[in-house]
């Protein structure tokens, strides 16, 4: 019953999960992204955080930046939630649902970073959080414009050739994902990743990378 109209970009669908109006699906392309996200989520569950060592120049002194168990537990929870949100965004078959999972990735990224007590990291988390917040305007705006002009949110209909999605909605969608995933704003990420706790912090990069790959697929197909 459900069949993707365009298979040149992402390959034929592998299987379809129906949740009422929201019909999620896997294609060769999204299944690959999904597997990658899943692998990284499992990696986050089983790994222990990395500890950084600061060496004082001109002497033998060094400081180890310790990660407390409470902080580690919280970060692992956030990284896990981030992984699940990424999984959700990868398999989503509905534009609004995709935007919701994207903003969940954004907020979990704030959470991973906010666990630190260093002021410069908190400042980066704050500035990034502001961007993530205002990014919901183009994100939801794009879904709303798509719904108003085409009368549907389901990607199964939107990917068809009979429905033309306005260009501005597509640009808004990309802009929104940019804001939530922070892909081009590596300034903030550099500040963020100066903090210890490697596998959890890397989840930020992985999630935004995957989100970007997915949104490109959506925008091209629409």
């Amino acid at each position: 019953m459900f069949e993707l109209p365009v298979t040149t970009i992402e390959g034929p669908e592998i299987f379809v999960i129906e949740f009422g109006d929201i019909v999620n699906y896997f294609t060769v392309y999204t299944a690959a992204l999904f597997t990658f996200a899943l692998l990284f989520t499992i990696l986050v569950i089983i790994s222990r955080p990395e500890r950084q060592v600061d060496i004082a120049f001109g002497g033998d002194a060094f400081y180890t930046k310790d990660v407390t168990p409470a902080q580690m537990k919280f970060q692992r929870f956030m990284a896990l939630a981030c992984g699940l949100a990424t999984l959700g965004a990868m398999m989503s078959g509905d534009v609004f649902n995709f935007t919701l999972f994207t903003s969940m990735v954004g907020i979990t990224n704030i959470g991973i970073v906010a666990a630190y007590k260093y002021k410069h990291v908190l400042n980066a988390a704050f500035q990034y959080g502001i961007v993530a917040m205002i990014a919901t305007v183009p994100l939801f705006g794009s879904a709303a414009i798509i719904l108003a002009t085409t009368g549907t949110l389901s990607m199964w209909e939107l990917f068809g050739s009979t429905i033309a999605v306005p260009l501005i909605a597509k640009i808004f969608l990309v802009l929104g994902v940019m804001g939530e995933g922070m892909a081009p704003f590596y300034v903030a990420k550099a500040e963020i990743t100066r903090a210890p706790g490697a596998p959890y912090v890397l989840m930020i990069h992985v999630s935004s990378l995957l989100l970007f790959l997915r949104v490109v697929e959506i925008v091209i197909s629409m």
């Binding site: 609004f96 919701l100 903003s103 954004g106 907020i107 704030i110 959470g111 906010a114 002021k119 908190l122 400042n123 988390a125 704050f126 959080g129 502001i130 993530a132 917040m133 919901t136 939801f140 879904a143 709303a144 719904l147």
Partner: peptide, 24 residues
């Protein structure tokens, strides 16, 4: 019906950000 999730996302992010602001 879509406004409700939209509103909740805004409120949640606001809550997290203001707490980060307070701590910072």
């Amino acid at each position: 019906a879509l406004i409700l999730p939209g509103l909740v996302v805004g409120i949640s992010e606001l809550m997290a950000i203001s707490e980060v602001f307070l701590v910072r």
